[in-house]
Design a binder for these strands. Structure first.
Lengths: 258, 258
DNA sequence: GCCAGTCGACTGGTCAGACCAGTTGAGTTC
DNA sequence: GAACTCAACTGGTCTGACCAGTCGACTGGC
């Protein structure tokens, strides 16, 4: 132990007051002492309890709020509301990564391929009857929308999102679903308009419905590898025309490798 | 269009002053106007430019800091430093999800299986000579550490992390690497001590080295599917004993399915 | 008795001004 | 030329104030 003197003295980072306050409150929230829906004391009350100034308390609350843990509303006599842990922060972080062009569109699609494939595979293995019913329900909804033309595109993609959420929940892995959702939002932000303008929406919707039916069939049959491959194929077909040309063939290879 | 009156009026959320400030600065950072390493004006200078009070500026800076975009140091005459987009925020969000038991350890490992498998597969297809050299280098470093007992565990896992980062960079998909890293940090946070206490570190290191050698061989040979499966196997072997019993067999199934 | 309106006691959001401890670099001293 | 001093910064914190919004209790008229 004495030989490893790199661990004896570590660089000391002064801990700011607002950090201590934020950590204490965050700890209470994560530990469950402050369940979602409960209220924090008023700011001026927190000032008394923590023995710091109001600006310090406010900076701490700001940090928690930007992390999506609490929400405050002016004039609310009950104090800030505890929201609990939400995935919004996650998708926010992913969104930043894409907007700063750390990640390209091709990388996003490829990333989502991996996530969706794993979700589908797990869902095929673990699904319950209720999960299947919810997926069927969304497909039915898509079918009823497919004739309405471009106006219903918004409702259609909502049904699509719900279908994928049903798969994610059936997979039993919340992380997969959350990340896939975040990436999906990031992708939509980048190319939604492009697709809406270029594509023949009716034909696109019908092909999309066909894909979803295939995936549902594979999941129902318990064929995980097939469901995974179908998920990749669908993403490739949707987005291949819109990614950067140099990554296009790589995406195709991602489908074939499985 | 007129039929879809849900989009005509949207709920209005008053935008706080500190939000506007934070958004403006964040926009400049993400757009590249403020590259990493550059400096923000001093707080009192921002007060003048934005025409708001210092507390407002400070709350905005606090939000950006908690998002990992900037870092400020007391007494620094250059002002806050722009850090650029980093995955720290991502791993922080993942850590919160696990600590609040929204996501279990098993889900984390399963998630990382999907990411690592995809990274390995892509790396096998796209690697350059420099990537292979860096992987070899880290394996050599692990070998030199494997005899030193528990004291060098820290350095060993650092080499391990660098090995995986080399794979991620070889894969050409930054998102995969960043997420894998975030998940890895979250996992480490949960069970690092457990592993350090329970396991025979020397034997564990040697098995780990053997795994890494196999993965490197598969990548060098360009065998993507094999590299992917090896990645899953390695994770299963490392963590299977530490995840919740009810998810253990599911992890094993994740390996076999591929 | 009930309902509408008023009013005051809160809330969070913002601002101004002050002080502190730390950093830095220019000037001073030896 | 090296060491020291010091003033001009920085960010971190506190105080006290004001505003607009919210809400509950009180009060008026019916």
């Amino acid at each position: 132990m004495a030989a490893d003197d790199t661990d004896l003295f570590r660089p000391v980072t002064p801990v700011r007051a607002y950090q201590r306050v934020a950590e204490q409150i965050e700890e209470r929230i994560l530990s469950g002492d402050l369940p979602p829906g409960s209220r924090l004391p008023a700011e001026r009350e927190l000032v008394n309890r923590f023995g710091v100034g109001r600006s310090t308390v406010r900076e701490a609350l700001r940090v928690l709020q930007s992390a999506g843990l609490i929400r405050s509303r002016p004039g609310d006599p009950l104090g800030a509301e505890v929201l609990g842990v939400s995935p919004d922060n996650l998708s926010q972080a992913l969104g930043r990564l894409t907007r700063s062009s750390v990640a390209t569109l091709g990388e996003l699609v490829q990333f989502r391929m991996a996530l969706d494939a794993e979700s589908n595979r797990l869902a095929a293995r673990l699904h319950g009857d209720a999960d299947l019913a919810r997926m069927r329900e969304q497909i039915t909804r898509m079918e009823s929308l497919s004739g309405s033309g471009p106006a219903s595109l918004h409702a259609f993609s909502e049904a699509d999102a719900l279908f994928h959420r049903a798969i994610a929940e059936a997979s039993g892995n919340s992380l997969l679903g959350l990340c896939a959702r975040a990436v999906h939002e990031a992708v939509v932000e980048v190319i939604e308009k492009k697709i809406a303008g270029v594509t023949d929406t009716t034909a696109w919707m019908e092909r999309s419905i066909a894909h979803h039916r295939e995936v549902l069939a594979a999941i129902t049959a318990g064929d995980g590898p097939l469901a995974a491959r179908l998920g990749r194929t669908a993403l490739h077909e949707y987005y291949a025309d819109h990614v950067e040309p140099e990554t296009r063939e790589l995406l195709a290879a991602s489908v074939e490798d499985h």
